[in-house]
Design a protein around this nucleic acid. Structure first.
Length: 243
DNA sequence: GCGACAG
DNA sequence: ATCTTGTCGC
């Protein structure tokens, strides 16, 4: 089912109000145990150029790319990049890429934060609520929340990412957990994982660690990154052939 | 006022 | 995100 058009607020105040409104609709329960096909989303942009996004359909059981959808959106049609409001810049082109994909994934894996956001609505959570699909965010750097405790150097290590944090402890002693700092590769900078929509905190971590990876990013997201760059450089649009 | 700040 | 050369390592 095709989601409604993505609203474009008149200014940041209106955008913030919309985020607070939608945060109440985020569902923090569920798992990806039954997810057979997921769509990984990433974008590539160049100064003065359009936003180019790739939606990679990933077969979980086979561990491979099934199809790719590519779309472009002029930069002046969306918000500029403002930390905390990323979805108002990139979500439109992601939704267009999903449409170009022409398939219905069971869940969305997004390059960015889920609920680990000042108002609880990072781009992964926003896209989940907008589409009704389960979603989860994997970001390459931190936006919101503080890691609790020291993160071990070994792959698979993780510590909670907390808001309104208390001193050092294991879980968020007095604050609430908004995500995880996860070491996906030994001695490599960690990624920031947080639930988006219709998935629990522990399940989000399990879902990410269950995905294959060649670098610090889960393979579906790495593929989306590669396709977005390739699409931008080659001017690709629409459904792409793979292999 | 100063530092932080997904992509 | 993008701008960019070399370099270390499998």
């Amino acid at each position: 089912m095709k989601p409604p058009p993505f609203p474009r607020p008149v200014d940041l105040a209106a955008a913030g109000a919309l985020q607070r409104e939608l945060t109440a609709r985020v569902e923090l329960a569920g798992s990806w145990a039954g997810v057979r096909r997921l769509a990984a989303l990433d974008a590539s942009i160049r100064r003065g150029g359009p936003l180019v996004a790739a939606a990679v359909l990933w077969d979980v059981a086979a561990g491979r790319v099934l199809a790719v959808g590519v779309a472009r959106v002029a930069a002046d049609e969306v918000f500029p990049y403002v930390p905390g409001y990323l979805s108002f810049r990139e979500a439109p082109v992601y939704l267009a890429a999903l449409e170009a994909l022409g398939a219905e994934p069971d869940a969305l894996l997004v390059d960015g934060q889920g609920i680990a956001h000042p108002r609880g609505l990072g781009i992964a959570a926003h896209l989940g609520v907008h589409t009704g699909l389960s979603s989860l965010g994997v970001a390459k750097s931190r936006l919101f929340g503080e890691p609790v405790g020291a993160l071990a150097e070994e792959a698979g290590a993780a510590v909670p990412l907390c808001a309104e944090n208390a001193p050092v402890g294991t879980p968020c002693v007095r604050g609430r957990q908004v995500g995880w700092v996860v070491r996906t590769r030994t001695r490599v900078k960690p990624v920031y994982v947080s639930p988006g929509h219709r998935i629990g905190m522990n399940e989000a971590l399990a879902a990410v660690l269950a995905l294959p990876r060649k670098t610090k990013l889960p393979e579906p997201l790495r593929q989306a990154h590669l396709w977005a760059g390739r699409a931008r450089r080659l001017g690709l649009v629409g459904r792409q052939d793979i292999g």
